[in-house]
Each structure stands twice: as structure tokens, then as C-alpha cells.
């Protein structure tokens, strides 16, 4: 423990030196030198909030500054995202962003921000899509599910959180790749659908691995959208193994107001990726079912282009035109 702490200090110090060398003469050389406000556009207790609080611990430890988490929930995140560019771009206001939300919401056309308005500097983790059934379900495998859905179109009901959401998108994607027709039943949130799933009122849930972890023992996972098998579900195949190119889920990251200078965006991106390297952070995230990814500001344009393409393709099937 002590040695880790020391190593952290060394890393932090190294970063400090690097940062000051790199940005010599720039105002932000000593960034961060006061508390950072981190706005979460969702209610406290949700995945975005929890992941941010794990970051908060490491941030304090590594950079010696407070990170103040402020939740500003509303309109599925849109309320806060609309406000992003009204904050000063001095790096002391971070905005938590989510994919596919920030692509789908503007497509849907009811929100007052555009995807380009959010200057994403990093995406640091995702919660992988997963097909979850209750333990008593007749569907033992992905193939059985597809067969049943093919035999009686529209009869298999799939619960998910929200409409035009990541779960909805994943359901349409499933319909597409399996060539089936199912009934998507939207719930207010993941917590809301659990009782209906376990009670057998819906056939399955298109959700995240996090749900399967929380309901271990009462549910079975048919497939997960990760690169490799999930360590907590070694017997569950990935979509890739099933011959489907599907590694996806809800990505979460950080955006800064557009006015932030490029070097500051780089600094925040580095901090974000640096937190991902913390052993304690990695352990906590893994236990919660969060998969870390390192998409920094350099990889951002390519990543966003690739993601947007996938989303728009599936969004067409959801009936989101434009």
C-alpha cells in the first residue's frame, strides 16, 4: 500500500514536471491548482455518478485538489449538456458525457444542443451491452433465443431502459443481426425493469453487464458485447464468438467547454487516462462491471466518427430519421 502511494506520488510528480515543461509559459502550467467542478447530467447513484466518484478519489490522491461532483439531472442528460458551453473554458468545469446519448438525442431533434457542441476530451470506460434472462427462462443460449424469436415474430418481449436509448439501440441492433422481430418494452431505468425481468413479465432484458453482476444467481447472461469473455461470466460467449461484430455499450467520458484551449484539453485528457492507470481504480471499476477504455483527445476524432457511423446505422431502424 505504502509503495503504491509512493509510486503515485512519483507518477504525479513526473506528470507535474512534464506538464510544466510541456506548457512552459502557459497560464495553465500548474493546472489544477484549485478545485475542479465535475458536472454529472444524471441523478446521483447512477452509473455515471458512481464512476465519477471513483475518479474523484483518485483525482484527489494524484493531484491534491478537490473534485466537486455536482449532479444536474434532467431531460436524459440534455439539460446539462445544453449548458456546457456557458461555463468558462478554464478547465475547472468538467462535463460528464455519454455515448450514444449525445449522438442520438440531437438526431431525435428535440434537444437544444448539437453533438459537435460538446468538446469531448476523453472516453474512459464503457458498460458493455448484455442480453440477460432470468434463471427460470427457457432460453439457455443465444441460439435458442434467436430461434424462438424467429418462430413467433413480435412475441419475444425485451425490456430496456428508456426510449431512443443505448438499450433501445442495442435491441434494434439485435433485431438486425439476428434477422428477427421483437417487442421492445421501455422502462424508466434499469432498476425499474429488474422486478419485471425476475418476475417473468418480460422475456429478457437488453441491458449492461452491470445488471447481470447485480443480479448474479437470479439471472443468466446469454451474450456480452465485450472483446474477450467477461471475467465474471466465463461461461458466457461474446457476440464476437457468435460471429457478430458487436463490441459496444454505453461509453462515458469528459467534455470541456468549447472555449478551452487545445493544450488544456490535452491536459484534462491526460489526467483522465492517468486515473485509468491507477490499480485501485481499476479494481473498483472491474468489480462494478465497468470496462476501462483509453480514448484520449488524440484518438477522439476517429473514435467519434466510427461510433457515429454505427449509431446512425441502427438509429435508422429505430425510426430516427434525418
Amino acid at each position: 500500500m505504502k509503495s503504491t502511494a509512493r509510486r503515485m506520488t512519483v507518477v504525479a510528480a513526473g506528470l507535474w514536471v512534464a506538464a510544466s515543461l510541456f506548457g512552459a509559459g502557459v497560464v495553465h502550467a500548474a493546472y489544477p491548482d484549485k478545485p475542479v467542478k465535475y458536472i454529472i447530467p444524471f441523478a446521483p447513484g447512477g452509473e455515471s455518478d458512481i464512476a465519477a466518484r471513483f475518479q474523484q478519489i483518485v483525482f484527489k490522491k494524484k493531484y491534491g485538489q478537490e473534485m466537486i461532483i455536482e449532479s444536474k439531472p434532467g431531460a436524459g442528460g440534455a439539460l446539462a449538456w445544453t449548458l456546457t458551453n456557458t461555463f468558462p473554458g478554464d478547465g475547472y468545469t468538467w462535463m460528464s458525457t455519454n455515448l450514444p446519448h449525445i449522438v442520438l438525442q440531437p438526431l431525435e431533434g428535440q434537444v437544444q444542443y448539437k453533438t459537435e457542441d460538446l468538446a469531448n476530451v476523453c472516453f474512459y470506460h464503457y458498460t458493455p451491452d448484455a442480453i440477460v434472462v432470468r434463471s427460470e427462462s427457457p432460453f439457455k443460449t443465444y441460439q435458442e433465443l434467436v430461434k424462438a424469436a424467429k418462430d413467433s415474430p413480435g412475441k419475444v418481449s425485451i425490456a430496456g431502459s428508456g426510449t431512443n436509448s443505448a438499450n433501445h439501440l442495442a435491441t434494434e441492433r439485435f433485431n438486425g443481426v439476428a434477422g428477427v422481430k421483437t417487442t421492445y418494452v421501455p422502462f424508466k431505468g434499469t432498476g425499474d425493469l429488474v422486478a419485471s425481468l425476475l418476475g417473468g413479465h418480460v422475456d429478457l432484458a437488453m441491458s449492461y453487464v452491470t445488471l447481470a453482476i447485480a443480479q448474479k444467481g437470479k439471472t443468466r447472461v446469454l451474450a456480452v458485447a465485450t472483446e474477450k469473455r467477461h471475467p465474471q461470466f466465463p461461461d458466457t460467449p461474446t457476440f464476437k464468438e457468435l460471429g457478430i461484430d458487436w463490441v459496444d455499450g454505453a461509453y462515458r467520458g469528459v467534455a470541456l467547454p468549447k472555449s478551452a484551449p487545445a493544450e488544456l484539453k490535452k491536459q484534462v485528457s491526460d489526467i483522465c487516462l492517468d486515473i485509468n492507470k491507477d490499480a485501485d481504480f481499476q479494481k473498483r471499476m472491474a468489480e462494478g462491471g465497468f470496462e476501462l477504455v483509453d480514448v484520449g483527445v488524440d484518438k477522439m476524432p476517429g473514435f467519434m466518427a466510427e461510433r457515429t457511423k454505427v449509431y446512425i446505422e441502427n438509429a435508422k431502424r429505430m425510426g430516427l430519421t434525418k
Binding site: 441523478a43 447513484g45 471513483f54 429488474v194 448474479k216 444467481g217 462494478g288
Partner: peptide, 26 residues
């Protein structure tokens, strides 16, 4: 069951996860 019946309980779930406890039957 690990089901939060209201927003306050949802927050309790968050508090448990932050403490490294998965709320649920286990």
C-alpha cells in the same frame, strides 16, 4: 432483490456500490 423502489433507495444502491458492495440477494 437489489431493486431500488424509489429515488432515495437508488441512491443507497449507489452508496453501496461505491463501498464495493453489490446490492442484491447475496
Amino acid at each position: 432483490l437489489g431493486i431500488p423502489p424509489n429515488p432515495v433507495m437508488a441512491l443507497m444502491v449507489g452508496a453501496m456500490i461505491i463501498q464495493g458492495i453489490q446490492p442484491g440477494p447475496q
